[in-house]
């Protein structure tokens, strides 16, 4: 199974990296870089100081934290997971190339796992460097020190990788189970997760964002909306160990279920 998965990984990585979809991935990963550059240029051109927030002046580190929270954690990571995770098998089915993989002496589950690994490496290779570039652009703003904050950057990178793994596995399961997986993925990302996070109680445990938040070394930003206010009010951060164990559990279980679903499901190609 592992050898077969690695061979599929080998075959899929090049396909994923050099596909037109990578343009989209690059745009997403490049968005925060563009934003960081924009902020830097504006602050260079205008002598205006960074604003005061809660009595303290906004710093480069705080801006980096904001970008991690609002762009990476709440948007880029789940969206990349939804897009690529649901496409692992769906792409091959849509392109009608799945036949070549499913008529080879490898378990079907290995096809999914191999493609998942390719997704993970491909997204990590693009998202993590993007976060590092943003860090180097914005951290020095307001007198921040790149060296001092470096350990926090490593935590951020770890969190992003874990997030990509967990969302990717969950959406791989969605892709292997549902007929319109991307719609389900978008409902989960933009409907379910922000929806249940505002409720107190156990419902939020049924999200990935809840556990992922515990891995972010920056404080959750204050948001102006009602939902943002409630989020702050019921903000509950689980212990780090619980979060890591839960995310690992979600990843492994979702991947195993996805692999089983691929094994038993029939894929009827459009004529």
């Amino acid at each position: 199974m592992i050898t077969s998965a690695l061979r599929i990984f080998d075959l899929s990585l090049g396909q994923m990296l050099w596909s037109r979809r990578s343009v989209f991935l690059a745009l997403l990963a490049g968005g925060p870089v563009g934003l960081a550059l924009g902020i830097r240029v504006i602050l260079l051109l205008t002598p205006a100081q960074l604003p005061m927030v809660n009595g303290a002046r906004m710093s480069g580190t705080a801006i980096f934290g904001l970008i991690i929270w609002l762009l990476y954690l709440r948007f880029i990571i789940p969206v990349l997971g939804a897009f690529y995770g649901t496409s692992l098998i769906a792409d091959e089915v849509e392109d009608k190339t799945i036949t070549y993989l499913f008529t080879r002496p490898i378990p079907r589950g290995a096809v999914l796992v191999g493609k998942y690994l390719a997704y993970l490496l491909c997204t990590i290779l693009l998202v993590l460097p993007s976060a590092v570039i943003v860090y180097f652009i914005v951290t020095p703003l307001g007198g921040g020190s790149i060296g001092e904050q470096f350990p926090s950057l490593l935590s951020d990178l770890g969190m992003l990788a874990v997030g990509l793994a967990a969302y990717g596995a969950l959406f791989a399961l969605v892709g292997a189970t549902f007929k319109r997986p991307l719609v389900v993925g978008l409902v989960f990302t933009f409907g379910w997760e922000p929806g249940v996070l505002i409720f107190p109680g156990y419902l939020k445990h049924a999200t990935i964002a809840f556990y992922l938040q515990a891995l972010v070394p920056h404080a959750m930003p204050n948001e102006e909306s009602v939902v943002g206010g409630i989020l702050q009010l019921f903000n509950e951060i689980p212990p780090l160990e619980t979060s890591l164990a839960s995310l690992a559990g979600i990843t492994l279980v979702a991947l195993w279920l996805a692999s089983r679903a691929t094994q038993t499901r029939e894929f009827v190609l459009d004529q």
Partner: peptide, 30 residues
């Protein structure tokens, strides 16, 4: 690919909102 389109659309809507969220905090006004 309709899937590709769907995700592009989500990006247009939610990324613009996320970018605004960052800019609002950085600039301190709306």
């Amino acid at each position: 690919s309709s899937r590709y389109v769907a995700i592009l659309y989500a990006a247009v809507i939610f990324m613009s909102q996320a970018i605004y969220g960052v800019l609002r905090q950085v600039t301190g006004d709306t």
